[in-house]
């Protein structure tokens, strides 16, 4: 318990740092938010009035506390290209991104962990070479290219994928909102048509989004397993005649898992960056495509809000990683 509290407390300075960082990005760097908001055509008086309204004429410190107060009230600014507050926009779009990220990381886990374990167990054999090629190529593929290739191949050429236009096919009604996750909501309402359609719509962007994670997780699983498999206690377990499956699955993997959990956490955090690209390509109505639309409209409050959100999620995921590792490995708890 004390470990949990210590870890939670350690997150506070990082959170403050992240907030300061975003604040500085909006205020210190060149570019005038008042001018941007008013538009290039606006006259000096309008810009000046806007500057006063936005509090930009105040000293930096009071601007910072004003910003902090806004954040604590859940005010992330106004997105003028949608006409809503950024908080409201994010709230309606977050479930779509969360669902995409979760499906994507599940795909990554299902593919990468067995691949990494098999690569380590059968080192330098065919499966290891295949695994290494996959991880090397996966790490070099630009997401936006891979996404477009997938659309061309699986939608245009083969007709397997539905049109890349969002979470559900045209003509199918979305399920009644309970969790905001179409897959879960359609199951809850027993609407199998909606379930199949949302599954067909999510699987392609999720596959594309998972490639980078598959590369990283399988590479880390392989190297962590190789290290553990070389240890004396594994040799002992093998030499006393234990089933190799048990040695690998129970003795070796459990000890390799903290490194794997760490990289899975890191990858989950990075998915939010990838989501911006993937959602844009597949017209997925999540926070990622919202960010791109904001950039196109030169409306930067949502971009900053998203960066803050992504950093907070990243910190929380890291916390969960540490707590999971503490649960797996008592040495972490007592360190």
């Amino acid at each position: 318990m004390s470990y949990v509290i210590r870890r939670l407390l350690a997150m506070i300075p990082a959170l403050i740092g992240v907030v300061i960082c975003i604040f500085l990005l909006t205020r210190i760097l060149p570019g005038d938010p008042a001018r941007t908001l008013a538009g290039e055509q606006a006259d000096a008086a309008t810009v000046e009035k806007l500057r006063v309204d936005m509090g930009l004429d105040q000293p930096m410190l009071s601007q910072f506390f004003g910003y902090l107060g806004d954040l604590l009230r859940g005010d992330l600014g106004f997105a003028w290209h949608t006409g809503h507050t950024v908080t409201a926009d994010l709230a309606t779009r977050l479930p779509a991104t969360a669902e995409l990220a979760i499906v994507s990381i599940l795909i990554a886990l299902i593919v990468a962990i067995p691949l990494g374990v098999l690569s380590a167990v059968y080192r330098d054999r065919a499966i290891d070479h295949i695994g290494r090629v996959i991880s090397l190529v996966g790490a070099s593929m630009p997401l936006f290219w891979l996404g477009l290739l997938a659309i061309y191949l699986f939608y245009f050429m083969l007709g397997w994928a539905p049109a890349p236009i969002g979470r559900i096919e045209t003509g199918v009604n979305p399920p009644t909102t309970v969790t905001g996750f179409y897959l879960v909501d359609s199951l809850l309402s027993g609407d199998m048509v909606a379930f199949t359609s949302s599954l067909k719509s999510i699987i392609w962007p999720a596959l594309v989004l998972s490639t980078g994670s598959i590369a990283m997780i399988s590479r880390m699983t392989r190297s962590a397993m190789l290290e553990v498999l070389g240890q004396d206690y594994v040799r002992t377990a093998v030499s006393k005649g234990l089933n190799p499956g048990i040695v690998v699955g129970k003795h070796a993997f459990r000890n390799a898992s903290p490194s794997v959990v760490t990289v899975v956490g890191l990858e989950f955090g990075q998915l939010l960056g990838g989501a911006v690209i993937t959602e844009t390509i597949f017209s997925w109505p999540g926070v990622g495509s919202y960010v791109t639309q904001s950039i196109m409209a030169t409306d930067y409050a949502p971009v900053q809000a998203f960066s803050l959100l992504a950093a907070v999620i990243f910190l929380v995921v890291n916390l969960l990683v540490d707590l999971t590792n503490a649960a797996i490995d008592p040495r972490v708890r007592n360190a």
């Binding site: 740092g17 992240v18 300061i20 760097l29 998915l271 911006v276 900053q304 992504a310 950093a311 990243f314």
Partner: peptide, 25 residues
């Protein structure tokens, strides 16, 4: 090093986006 940790708390593409947006495309 704490400042560096803060920078590492951002997913890399997201931080690049935030900086590029602040500087102007």
């Amino acid at each position: 090093m704490r400042v560096m940790d803060v920078l590492l708390a951002f997913p890399s593409l997201v931080l690049a986006m935030a900086v590029a947006a602040a500087l102007g495309p």
